[in-house]
Computed example of a mutant assay.
Amino acid sequence: MKKGKWLIYFVLILAVAVMTIPFLWMLLTSFKTFEDSTKIPLQILPEQWILTNYTEILEVFPIAKWFMNSILAVVISLLAQVFLGSLAAYAFARLRFPGKKFLFMLMLSIMMIPEQIFIIPRYNTLAAVGLTNTRVALWIVRLFSVFAVFMMRQFILSVPRELDEAAMIDGCGYFRIYATIILPVLRAPIVSLAILSGLSTWKDMMWPLIVIRDRDKMPVVSGLSTLADYFANKYPQLMAGGVLCSIPVIIFFFVLQKYFVAGIASQGIKE
């Protein structure tokens, strides 16, 4: 039994090393000079710790505007997904109406289609209403999430129906039951959705590069993707840009990780 535990620990440590070493290398390289970053043999720690790589990026690119664009897109899309997704999930889990199972399966089938297929129809739709090259285009396509509906529906199914029936006896309607009974139960899946969907919105690079032309309206990931054109082979500056993209997501995850683990480990994901 002890040998089995040590093997599990070894595999976990190896997995952590595989995931963290590239980030640590990127972080250390962002504080190096160009000469230190190209030395052979490779030098792990900088001989001279400098911050000029970060200051150069901040001077050349509108980082503050990019961060605000990204934060705005993440916040609006998350609020919409939680509200619309939880309402739809409540309807699919609790209400009875014709074709409910068929509609739910039809909605789930969308998850099987690669997201890239929707890029052209989305762009044509936004272009028709004049929303291309606007900050609205960054989040309007993410207002509704099929995954959010599916995940929260599974959690709602784990809530005893007796609670709904007791509330109806007391005179509560469907919306009040949703607001006072269902939503408090959904705290863990909502946090899990915030991490998963927020990360997906934050790191999305393809869609903003297609729909946005003005540099000031870009989110941070798409904006910093242009670093390679400006700094060419200046690796410390490129690594500094990668660190700037990663740190907010890492902080966000560590703040909410307790709720994320609770949401994944709970018994809600069941039919």
Rank of each mutant, 00 (worst) to 15 (best):
W6N: 10
I8Y: 03
I8H: 01
V11D: 01
V11R: 03
I13G: 01
I13K: 01
I21Q: 07
I21D: 02
T29H: 04
F31N: 09
S37D: 06
L42G: 09
L42M: 11
L45G: 04
Q48G: 00
T52A: 00
T52S: 05
N53E: 10
N53S: 06
Y54C: 03
E56R: 13
I57M: 01
L58I: 03
L58A: 10
V60Y: 07
K65P: 00
K65S: 14
F67G: 07
M68P: 00
S70C: 02
A73Y: 05
V75Y: 00
I76A: 13
Q81Y: 01
S86Y: 06
L87V: 12
A88P: 02
A89T: 12
A89Q: 07
A91L: 09
L95I: 13
G99D: 02
F104M: 14
L106G: 01
M107E: 09
I110C: 07
F118Q: 11
Y123M: 08
N124K: 15
T125E: 07
G130H: 05
L131P: 05
T134F: 06
L138Y: 06
L138I: 15
W139T: 10
W139Y: 13
R142D: 11
R142C: 12
A148S: 15
V149Q: 12
F150K: 15
I156L: 10
L157S: 08
P160N: 10
R161W: 06
L163S: 06
D164K: 13
M168H: 12
M168E: 13
I169Q: 05
G173D: 13
Y174V: 10
I177F: 03
I181A: 00
I181C: 05
I182F: 04
L183E: 01
S192D: 05
L193P: 11
L196F: 15
K203W: 00
M205W: 02
W207Y: 06
I212S: 00
R215V: 02
S222R: 14
G223V: 02
L224A: 10
L227W: 15
A232F: 03
M239V: 09
A240F: 11
G242P: 07
I247A: 05
P248C: 11
V249C: 15
I250N: 08
F252H: 11
F253I: 14
F254S: 01
F254K: 09
V255N: 05
G263H: 02
E271M: 03
